[in-house]
Design a binder for these strands. Sequence first.
DNA 1: ATGCATATCT
DNA 2: AAGATATGCA
Length: 355
Amino acid sequence: MALPQQFSTNIRVLVIDHDINLLNAIEKVCYKFNYKVKTCSKVSDALNLLLGKKDIFDLVLIEAKMPDMDSYGFLRHVTQQINIPVIMMCVDGSRSVVMKAIDDGACDYWIKPLTESLIMNMWQHVARKLWKENKNLELMSEGVVNTSMKQESVEKNNNKPESSTKTRIKWSSELKRKFISIVVELNVDKATPKKILARMNEPELTREHVASHLQKYRYKLKRGETKKQKKQNKTAEATTKAKISNESSEFDFQAYDASILHVVPNNFMPTNFTHQPNNFPHQPNNFPYQPNKFIPPEPIVNAVPIKFYHTDSEEETSSSASINQQQNCNGFGTNSIINPAFINTLNGFGFVYCN
DNA sequence: ATGCATATCT
DNA sequence: AAGATATGCA
């Protein structure tokens, strides 16, 4: 029932946002908590990373409104096909938008401006996923003994000389990657076999091949959604039941899953960190990651609220000339800059950025 | 050309 | 037996 002993909070995070400044800010905070980070300003870049080597990221963080690709399509794909928890973030925190994100599989939704504690605690999503998987394993092993003796098949069984079969095509991970990136780019509903085939640029492939594969792909998506719906119905049912009977139910927790994640006592942090992902790609030169040295995050208690100024986006880069709105704020991520007069007071309170 | 159902293969 | 892929048809 517990988390695996080797669980590490040094998670590997992929962050996607068009705002370079925000990317930098998040990156810094991640370093502070010994998270491994890779940032992308384009969804397509992120997709390529995810479809490359497997098991590279534990968590994905993406801005809801990206210029180059539909974030929600990306969200659905990553959640259902790649099975990595995704957090969506946006200034728009309206109910419908948040709900859509959650409905599409987001494990959380962050309303900008962000706070450091959000990032500090995001490892919980990875932990929760692991916990669920462990639970499933336990349930399975409790059943039939023989089923647990499953052999882990390595993907390197390429010894087959496919000589005779001329029509049947093998969808290698390479091909799948290509296919998926195109479909996501095109939007699943708009993707059509012909279009996909054209972009695939694979002479071996026929339109029928692609059509068949597309059908399977959509089927899987659909199946994932119905599962999700059932789950939701169950939780809703249970919640109302609990309300009626005035009893607290385990489903209460699930129903508010996304909203209660941020409150965690620091002493809950796991103490074993044997997990050492050495194969992390694209490390920046100044990557400060130290696998054996874990620095527990500190609660933000000494943070002093600072004055925050919003500016027009066009003039954002020209220092603080165009201040048109002022408000108290202690977060980042809203294309804001800080009046230089206040920077000195920050004193190592490093999660705010300015131009 | 598509999408769906289902046959066929592994 | 189940999942992947091909084929038939509206």
